[in-house]
Design a protein around this nucleic acid. Sequence first.
DNA 1: TAGATTGTTAATCGATTAACAATC
DNA 2: TAGATTGTTAATCGATTAACAATC
Lengths: 231, 231
Amino acid sequence: MPQRSISKSVIKRLPVYLRILDNLIRRDVEIISSKELSNESGFTAEQIRKDLAYFGAFGTRGTGYNTMYLREQILKIIGLDKKTSIIVIGAGHLGTALTRYNASKNPYVSVKAVFDIDPALIGGDINGIPIFDYAEIAGIIKEHQIKVALITVPAGAAQEVVDDIVSHGIRAILNFAPVKLRVPSHVHVFNADLTMELQSLIYYSSAEEERLSRLQQDQDTAKPSKTLTLD
Amino acid sequence: MPQRSISKSVIKRLPVYLRILDNLIRRDVEIISSKELSNESGFTAEQIRKDLAYFGAFGTRGTGYNTMYLREQILKIIGLDKKTSIIVIGAGHLGTALTRYNASKNPYVSVKAVFDIDPALIGGDINGIPIFDYAEIAGIIKEHQIKVALITVPAGAAQEVVDDIVSHGIRAILNFAPVKLRVPSHVHVFNADLTMELQSLIYYSSAEEERLSRLQQDQDTAKPSKTLTLD
DNA sequence: TAGATTGTTAATCGATTAACAATC
DNA sequence: TAGATTGTTAATCGATTAACAATC
């Protein structure tokens, strides 16, 4: 019974634990210590124990955690104990890749429909999942009581789409469009902006000291004159 | 001249500022205050000023920031002032989507090649970018002095691929495979594990208090007996 | 000059790490 | 019982926010 809501950093680590447990169970490992989970995950043993402790006491002192039991509990914590119905908006290459991947490899979700406005795509399907005209989205959201949507539409269309689907009951959005979405406080948006990930990665691809000292030099000469700046 | 290296949280915000500046410049806005940048980005004005201050003094007191100048400086900070050559490993749906997107929409990178092991794909191209046999990767990395790779291979193959490309000089990896990669300390890995993003999102798709209190009840009855756990 | 906004230092907040008592 | 490892409280660390002097 957590007093205040649990931090996003904790929630983001839970799927990591889940994946490790899935692998351990596949290898018939029945017990695992926080120390070993630390090795597998890269997080410290203390952090793992603390993360789990937010939700309950799942381990056995002196022994460790039962892998099957802990997995079940984490599934319940995240809400993966029942399949979650989702929709994908935008049937471009990324939307198609995500639909296929989730339809075939992700046992925790069920992709109910894909939406697009391109007449050439509407009526088709991706791995058996129908592509509908975006105009039909309200009905489908209602019919399947969808709460989660993946958005892979062009940047210019994203906010409009979001306003629309939120009004129909969507509560959680994984946004691949490179825009900051504005949503009411009860709606959660996670951004998976791959361009931005790639850009910050590029920062780390060359020796940082070197580039930053070059920057330092440039500034001495290159800063625009005040008059140029202000007029 | 930063004494110690700048935190990843700061670096991850720079591309956000960059995108906002791009949009402002397109609209011929010449000056922007940290307050306005805050509105556009969702970060506080103080945070934005502090982030920028790590790298230099780019603004004009009483006025704000010159959009063109600040953009240029951020490009230099990240290392986007020259096009970065990248490769994509794995020519599946996700690899194809990423290649296409970056080839056509991302002006800061140049996708030099895509690699796969499927004979049906090798020799083909994606938006004019050639798909090579993975066996040829060492030569291509060397030829173009590639430092950045996007990995969209199956989970089981990812670590092997990473060990290989790191030995050929790759220093930064955007990893889409659902595995924790082990790399030497000079190599940086960013994970874009979409399954995990989706899983943590699902946590937020239903009222959290409700589910967690349900969890609480279950634990009273469902915890496995000690003997069952230990034997 | 007065008003505005930066750049920077100090205070606060939250998350991670360390320590250890509880207990299997 | 002795050894091991959890669950939890306290200490530390780092990042964010607040405050304000510098200055355009």
